[in-house]
């Protein structure tokens, strides 16, 4: 598995898209930090970018990589290698190279900016950690979609739909549900609703740092326990890990059964 991981990783490292992705984050980081005089505003903008863009790129890249390397995968399948290690290797190769572009692209400008002396280091590390988690989750989801669809166009369509659903539509439905049932106690429902969407989950995680004073404005014991203590942080991280593990397990399961 490690060999395939290494191969995929270096293959991607040589590819143009990784550089474009890396350069994009580098540019974003530099512009936000050096042309903007306020660090808190930069962190908020970065959060918006990470929450929207990282899942999108993770999905598209994952699907694209799978379809592009299909012939190579078939070649590998002919060798005496375990199927799970082929697909996990490829998955990790994509996910890790994307995460690396993200971390280096945003990290380098921040290091030059003098992040280690600034108080925003925790906000910023949290951003990078959630960004990495989102990459892992959405690449895994993309591999799932690609494995289940032989048709490339269909695969891309589903991938974009998945992103659109989780990034925008889900929140709309969520908001409508909350408003429709506003006469009932909703704090548990709203927390569960958040847990079921990795994008919302990462957003909440960052909100815990940025907007804690607003979040504490709501009267609810469950909310208070969740946001007021480190309980919220622990649960969110746990759920993000679950969100990584489940799609990866499905990749393994699906790859075993699939007829090539």
């Amino acid at each position: 598995m490690l060999k395939i991981l290494k191969y995929s990783f270096f293959d991607l490292m040589r590819s143009r898209w990784s550089y474009v992705y890396f350069a994009f984050y580098l540019l974003l980081g530099v512009v936000l930090l050096f042309l903007n005089n306020d660090l808190s505003k930069a962190v908020i903008t970065l959060m918006n970018v990470i929450i929207v863009l990282v899942p999108l790129i993770g999905t598209i890249f994952g699907v694209m990589y799978y379809y592009n390397s299909q012939e190579f995968t078939e070649l590998l399948l002919a060798q005496p290698i375990k199927r799970s290690s082929i697909f996990l290797g490829q998955y990790l190769g994509v996910a890790l190279s994307l995460s690396m572009s993200l971390i280096l692209g945003l990290g380098i400008p921040f290091v030059f900016y003098g992040l280690f002396e600034s108080s925003a280091i925790w906000d910023f590390s949290l951003l990078l950690i959630t960004g990495t988690f989102l990459t892992l989750i959405f690449t895994a989801l993309a591999f799932n979609i690609a494995l289940s669809n032989e048709n490339k166009i269909k695969g891309f369509g589903y991938a974009i739909l998945l992103w659109l659903f989780l990034a925008v539509i889900y929140d709309g439905l969520f908001l409508m549900t909350l408003i429709m049932f506003e006469d009932y106690p909703l704090d548990k429902l709203s927390l569960i609703g958040t847990m079921l969407n990795p994008i919302d989950l990462s957003r909440t995680l960052i909100l815990l740092k940025l907007d804690i004073s607003a979040l504490l404005g709501y009267t609810g014991a469950v909310f208070k326990q969740f946001f007021g203590t480190s309980f919220g942080l622990v649960v969110s991280f746990f759920m993000l890990t679950v969100w990584v593990i489940l799609p990866v397990l499905r990749i393994v399961f699906k790859a075993k059964k699939k007829d090539f």
Partner: peptide, 14 residues
């Protein structure tokens, strides 16, 4: 109106 919706703060839909 619905205080619980605070959880959707900074969402793209919002």
């Amino acid at each position: 109106r619905t205080p619980e919706t605070i959880i959707l703060l900074r969402s793209m839909f919002i």
